[in-house]
Nucleic acid binder design. Structure first.
Length: 388
DNA sequence: TCGCCTTTGAAGACT
DNA sequence: AGTCTTCAAAGGCGA
């Protein structure tokens, strides 16, 4: 995130949520910018095609270099030696797995997949940000700020797939549900803070600008958890899900099973507070539907590959909007669940087999530890633009 | 039914 | 401090 929190946290300690990694995402200036502009200018036609051709390149490189290529696979001719290039290298590498999922191949074959996919990329996030003016002294990114005011006050295109957290706070009736949850978990959670009241106090008029909010309020997952039954305010925070089983529920399945559930089962379904979504997750959530609609792909793994590539093709301004969203998301999450820690969910998922990780290590993607071999040669910390 | 796949980013755990 | 590990979303697929 380019300098979203510059200025030493005008919104207080909690504002210092812009992770350093966010800055790294914008290290790739210079040739990277050219790269992105090429990608963007070329449009989606090249998106999948490049992905596919890159795979070919990688295999060619592997053949020519006798296994040397690994991290050095370049797809856009970045400058050698530059820190940005280093950071970029493993990115590129990650984007091109050894094997392309069949489903992805199908998607690549599908001509409709290469049509107009790149338009409107961040309009949704852009639009959303309009409703969340940056906290004082925070989010003062010079590039992300000015365009945040849509004079018309209407979504330019489509329906933003907002993180429920935001939609939740878009409600003119802020729900006390999270606090309720917190009580159950024995965590003190102040309902509202001065920071947030200024942040998310939306008028009912703004609701009209967020028609998608309805989907959030009517989503069955919101009927879980605690709260005052039968009242909209009873809707718990969407980050709260039953701890047992997957988060996803059958769409619009509102059968009152919970009433008949035995006590033990209820115990097992104690709500879990999920991690706030990061910038890329927010981007994926928003763009997934488009990719699915325009491609024949359905497999998330393949879609995520495309989205990952598109993510890197986004301009820094476009990415900045998602970073800003994610930052606000974390901020909200922190305000809602002050006692929550990612540790709470640590180890809840079953671990993958170590062997598979080691396989991927040799494959040049994330190694057995989820990082990249090149990380040892991590680029120098990104200097905020204000410094530069 | 459950975990894997696949992506990036955030953050906890570990050295 | 630096590195490693896990989780966040999503839905098809295989065991």
């Amino acid at each position: 995130m380019p300098q979203l929190d510059s200025g030493g946290g005008g919104a207080g300690a909690g504002d210092d949520l812009g992770a350093p990694d966010e800055l790294l995402a914008f290290q790739d200036e210079g040739e990277e910018q050219d790269d992105k502009s090429r990608d963007s200018a070329a449009g989606p036609e090249r998106d999948l095609a490049e992905l596919k051709s890159s795979l070919v390149n990688e295999s060619e490189g592997a053949a020519a270099g006798a296994g040397v290529p690994g991290p050095g696979v370049r797809v856009h001719g970045e400058a050698e030696g530059a820190p940005e290039a280093l950071g970029r290298e493993h990115t590129s590498q990650r984007l091109f797995p050894d094997k392309l999922p069949e489903s992805l191949e199908d998607g690549l074959k599908a001509p409709e997949c290469a049509s107009g996919m790149y338009k409107e990329t961040v309009y949704s996030a852009f639009n959303l940000l309009m409703h969340y003016p940056p906290a004082s002294g925070a989010g003062q990114h010079p590039q992300s700020q000015p365009p945040l005011h849509n004079k018309a006050g209407q979504p330019p295109h489509g329906v933003p797939q907002l993180s429920p957290l935001y939609e939740h706070f878009s409600s003119p009736h802020p729900t006390p549900a999270p606090a309720d949850i917190s009580q159950k978990q024995g965590v003190h959670r102040p309902l509202q803070t001065p920071d947030l009241s200024g942040f998310y106090s939306l008028t009912s008029g703004s609701m009209g600008q967020l028609p998608h909010t309805v989907s959030w309020f009517t989503h069955p997952s919101l009927m879980l958890g605690s709260g005052v039954p039968g009242h909209p305010a009873a809707i718990p925070h969407p980050a709260i899900v039953p701890s047992s089983g997957k988060q996803e529920l059958q769409p619009y399945d509102r059968s009152p099973k919970t009433q008949a559930e035995p006590k033990a089962e209820k115990e097992a379904k104690k709500p879990t507070i999920k991690k706030p979504l990061n910038a890329f997750m927010l981007y994926m959530k928003e763009m997934r539907a488009k990719v699915i609609a325009e491609c024949t792909l359905k497999e998330s793994a393949a879609i995520n590959q495309i989205l990952g590539r598109r993510w890197h093709a986004l301009s820094r301004e476009e990415q900045a909007k998602y970073y800003e969203l994610a930052r606000k998301e974390r901020q909200l999450h922190m305000q809602l669940y002050p006692g929550w820690s990612a540790r709470d969910n640590y180890g809840k998922k079953k671990r993958r087999s170590r062997e598979k990780h080691q396989e991927s290590t040799t494959g040049g993607k994330r190694n057995a530890f989820g990082t990249y071999p090149e990380k040892a040669a991590a680029p120098a910390p990104f200097l905020p633009m204000t410094v530069l």
